Simulated scan of single mutants.
Amino acid sequence: MMLLGKVLCVLGVLAGLLAFFWRDTWNPESLSGARVLLTGASAGIGEEMAYHYSTFGAELVLTARREAALQRVKEKCMELGAKRVFYFMADMASPEEPQKVVQFALQKLGGLDYLVLNHIGWSPFEMWDRDVAHVQWLMQVNFLSYLGLVSAALPALEESKGSLVVVSSLVGRIATPFAAPYTATKFALEGFFASLRQELVMQQKEVSVTVCILGLIDTESALKKTRCVHGSIRRGACGRNRSYKS
Results as ranks from 00 to 15, higher is better:
L37R: 09
L3I: 12
K186H: 09
A34L: 07
L115C: 06
G12H: 05
S123P: 10
K224N: 08
A184T: 13
L60W: 05
T183M: 09
H230A: 15
A133M: 14
L112K: 14
V102P: 04
R23F: 13
S163A: 05
V116L: 10
A64P: 06
L38P: 12
C238R: 03
P181N: 13
V102E: 02
I213A: 08
A82I: 14
S32Q: 14
L31M: 10
V135R: 00
F193D: 02
R35K: 15
R197A: 06
D129Q: 02
G111C: 09
I233F: 14
G81T: 06
E199W: 03
D131R: 13
V85D: 02
Q198E: 15
R72D: 11
G40Y: 02
L8Q: 12
F20W: 15
V171Y: 03
L214C: 01
R66V: 00
A133E: 15
R65P: 07
S42V: 02
A64H: 03
L3T: 09
M78Y: 03
L214W: 00
S160N: 07
L106E: 14
L31S: 06
T63P: 04
S145H: 01
W22N: 06
A152W: 15
T219V: 14
A152L: 02
C238M: 11
F143V: 12
E199K: 09
P28G: 01
M202L: 15
R197C: 10
G44I: 07
F21H: 07
D129M: 04
V207K: 04
T25I: 15
G231H: 09
F193S: 09
L37N: 10
L147D: 03
F21L: 11
G162V: 07
D24A: 08
Y114K: 13
T226G: 12
F178W: 15
L196T: 09
K83Y: 01
F56E: 13
V229R: 00
V141S: 09
A175E: 05
L157H: 01
G215V: 02
E126P: 07
F193R: 00
G81L: 01
T39C: 14
N27G: 02
G111T: 04
T55H: 00
P28C: 10
L14H: 09
L38I: 04
L214V: 08
S32I: 04
V102T: 00
R65Q: 06
G236Y: 12
Y87M: 04
A58Q: 08
W122C: 15
S32G: 08
K76R: 11
L60G: 13
V141L: 07
W122S: 14
F143N: 12
G191R: 07
A156K: 06
L147N: 04
V101F: 01
P155R: 04
S54A: 15
K225H: 12
Q107A: 09
L200I: 03
P95V: 03
S42W: 00
L223F: 09
F86K: 08
W122K: 10
H230W: 11
E29K: 05
A180E: 10
K6Y: 06
Q103S: 14
K186Y: 01
L8W: 11
E29N: 15
L170N: 08
V171T: 07
V167Q: 02
S169A: 15
K108D: 00
L144N: 13
K224Q: 13
T210C: 15
L70Y: 06
V13I: 14
L18V: 15
M49V: 06
C77T: 05
N142C: 13
L164C: 12
S246I: 01
T183P: 07
L17T: 04
R235E: 05
V132Q: 11
G33A: 05
